[in-house]
Design a binder for these strands. Structure first.
Length: 233
DNA sequence: ATCCCGTCGG
DNA sequence: CCGACCGGAT
């Protein structure tokens, strides 16, 4: 949930999600539609699908959530940052990882006069300063510090990072439409594709294209021009 | 209108 | 390595 999303926006969804799916097993057993129903509104719905798939993979193999970055990265939706964070926070392992808040701290304190900074350069300082006795506590403090720094400073230090770039506009985009379709499906369980196009004020061709991409990702199913969330039919 | 900020597929 | 992916705040 915290991938690309600030804590303040996550907390309420987190509480609701854990209340609905209190265990890995209950998440794995649930249909994707009900998972998306709880997730919808938080954004990046594929994170919900990835989490659900991960729960199923763990359940099927009988494996415990790994404490090794390498193994954690095998699961869908878990990349370098999330793997490192899980190992550090859940198992108190001295992993090395960078997120936007951590990046901000190191650029501010060590690399402020430079530009086009790579994560490789930042990682040097992350390794140098890591508290290997209390990694979880250290990273917690680091991320909080970065968050506060972000609110405090007039200019974002991360604009000096190589990763920093501005994004395309949201209004009228495909991803706005994707979110709207999932939201409608959360409310109605199933909808005719023509009806959906009418409600969202878009052309047949355009909605067909978006539905196709969502179906390919396993977010929904389209049968006989009727659309269902997840794999419900 | 622009910012926020990880993962993955092409 | 580039660009798509969500939605709320500003």
């Amino acid at each position: 949930m915290l991938q690309q999303t600030q804590v303040e926006r996550v907390v309420e969804y987190y509480r609701k999600f854990l209340h609905t799916f209190p265990s890995l097993k209950s998440l794995a057993m649930a249909p994707l539609a009900s998972v998306l129903r709880v997730w919808s509104g938080l954004g990046y719905n594929r994170r919900a699908r990835n989490l659900w798939r991960t729960a199923q993979m763990l359940q099927n193999s009988g494996a415990r959530i790994p404490d090794e970055v390498e193994q954690l990265c095998q699961y869908p939706g878990i990349g370098p940052y999330t793997a490192g964070a899980i190992a550090a926070f859940a198992y108190n392992k001295a992993t090395l990882f960078i997120d936007t808040n951590i990046r901000r701290v190191y650029i501010y304190y060590f690399l402020f006069q430079q530009k086009d900074i790579t994560d490789r350069e930042i990682m040097y300082y992350v390794k140098l300063t890591l508290d290997s006795v209390q990694p979880a506590k250290w990273y917690n403090a680091l991320m909080d510090a970065g968050s506060i720094l972000g609110k405090l400073l007039p200019e974002n230090p991360n604009s000096k990072s190589r990763k920093y770039c501005k994004q395309s506009s949201f209004e009228g985009s495909i991803r706005q439409l994707r979110g709207a379709i999932v939201r409608k499906l959360v409310m109605h369980h199933s909808l005719h594709i023509d009806e959906l196009a009418h409600i969202l004020h878009i052309s047949e061709n355009r909605i067909q294209y978006v539905i196709d991409t969502l179906q390919k990702e396993g977010m929904l199913v389209c049968e006989e021009r009727k659309v269902y969330l997840g794999s419900e039919t």
